[in-house]
Design a protein around this nucleic acid. Structure first.
Length: 429
RNA sequence: GGAGAGGUAGCCUAAUUGGUAAGGCAGUAGUCUUGAAAACUACCGCGGGAAACCGCUUGCAGGUUCGAGUCCUGUCCUCUCCGCCA
């Protein structure tokens, strides 16, 4: 959520920023009058409330002094205020709701150094690591490799659940587990993150906090239970909300969490896209990095978090590139996002395997997460960051495709061998 | 699922028959001190405001009342016991 004071004072700049995000700035047309009305009604309601509070105090004093007649007169006076007060409070609530609805639907403002452009064509590559391997045979994609090795079964998954689900078996399931353990060990052991296991089901307040609601309800799997539960689309949602409605101590920052969870996405509206294989699933596993930090530290923490995610690919010796998303390609809550893309031989291109975002104070304002600094100053909103470290299913794909051999087997990356009982390769059982 | 107890500020604890949130710890600043501790003074829930000051706050939402931490209704959460259970 944007700061209403900032929007009031920088209306044209906000309008331009929204346009750069392909967001119709017309919703801001009524901001000024809505804002003025809200503040007018609010102060008027305050005044009336003040009058009534004072009168009540006087009545209390009169009652204790035994002057009941004067107290009764005063009571009658206050009774006349009640109707007026109810009316003003109703107006204030309506104005608050209207303003909140307007603001809660607005995306975050892009950082100054984000490239401006209409879509992914304006994204900018910032670095590239590793060299794609040369194959002297016809490469297969992960679906053919996995199916022929007997470690991936998409047809039976479709029978059991539906499309966009998968069954991993044998060394395939083990590889997934090895990747998870490896990533968690690196992030906890070398990067200083605290491992955490959050709820996989969250309530609506939590979904509002990170920005999934109110605009992206259709992306979620929502339970029919009347408590408003949804399955998490990413661990970012529960973990970032750990300190919702809290004021934390500055000394506790930065907080760095790593969470391994399944993620559930309805993928409504993505029919026909990435229909083959594991790229886009209703259920997938992800190791997620989340940071909560001081405002002036978030840019540094963002670079570091992205580097932490890249480290996994370096250790797995998988070629990748890192790009910064343009204004037109960024997510709702982000002010700046790096995507890390891994090389997939079957597609002869780089594909997203991690998305690392600095959300600034956007989520913190929605969640009410603030920090109290030393010296008794007023609480400030924290900054929040998140990034995949990494998407496990897509890493599984990258390992199969980049480490495939002419005979259809897959050699095990050096760093994963300890997690695979020391086996050298995955062969047909 | 049944029965009971309880949610007060970062933590802990008060508040007469309803009278407008008291205190302690921690924390911050200062005095004193070579420095620290101790002691003393001030600040010490949230929002707005340059300030004076104003408004809000006892899990949440309503109701009664001139006035609700206190009375009533609903709801969320925590704990205890019983039942069931991975």
């Amino acid at each position: 959520m944007l700061d209403p004071n900032y929007v009031r004072e920088n209306l044209e700049a906000v309008r331009a920023a929204l346009a750069a995000r392909n967001f119709p700035p017309a919703v801001l047309d009524h901001f000024a009058e809505l804002d003025a009305e809200r503040r007018r009604v609010n102060s008027e309601a305050d005044d009336v409330n003040h009058e009534r509070n004072n009168a009540s105090k006087e009545i209390g004093a009169l009652m204790q002094a035994g002057k009941t007649a004067e107290a009764d007169a005063k009571k009658a006076e206050v009774a006349g205020l009640k109707g007026r007060q109810a009316e003003l409070e109703k107006q204030r609530d309506e104005a608050d709701v209207a303003m909140r609805e307007l603001l809660s639907g607005l995306p975050n403002l892009p950082a100054a150094d984000v490239p401006v452009g209409p879509d992914e064509s304006a994204n900018v590559e910032v670095r590239r690591w590793g060299t794609p391997r040369e194959f002297d045979f016809e490469v297969k994609d992960h679906v053919d490799l996995g199916t022929e090795l007997g470690i991936l079964d998409l047809e039976r998954a479709a029978k059991v659940a539906g499309s966009r689900f998968a069954i991993l078996s044998g060394q395939g399931a083990k590889l997934e587990r090895a990747l998870v353990s490896f990533m968690l060990d690196v992030h906890t052991g070398e990067h200083g993150y605290t491992e955490t296991q959050p709820p996989l089901i969250v309530n609506r307040e939590t979904l509002f906090g990170t920005g999934q609601l109110p605009k992206f309800e259709e992306d979620l799997f929502t339970l029919t239970d009347d408590r408003g539960f949804s399955l998490i689309p990413t661990a970012e949602v529960p973990v970032t909300n750990y300190h919702r409605d809290e004021i934390v101590e500055a000394a506790s920052l930065p907080m760095k969490f790593v969470a391994f969870t399944p993620c559930f996405r309805s993928e409504a509206g993505s029919y026909g896209r990435d229909t083959r294989g594991l790229i886009r699933q209703h259920q997938f596993e992800k190791v997620e990095l989340v940071k909560i930090c001081l405002p002036e530290e978030s840019e540094k923490e963002h670079e570091e978090l992205t580097a932490n995610a890249e480290k996994i690919l370096q250790l797995l010796e998988l070629p990748y590139r890192t790009i910064v998303l343009s204004t037109g390609d960024m997510g709702f809550s982000a002010r700046k996002t790096y995507d890390i893309e891994v090389w997939l031989p079957s597609q002869q291109t780089y594909r997203e395997i991690s998305s690392c975002s600095n959300c600034g104070d956007f989520q913190a304002r929605r969640m009410g997460t603030r920090v109290r600094r030393a010296g008794g100053s007023k609480p400030e909103f924290v900054h929040t960051l998140n990034g995949s470290g990494l998407a496990v299913g897509r890493t599984w794909i990258a390992v199969l495709e980049n480490y495939q051999q002419a005979d259809g087997s897959v050699t095990v990356p050096e760093v994963l061998k300890p997690y695979m009982n020391g086996i050298e390769r995955i062969s047909k059982a």
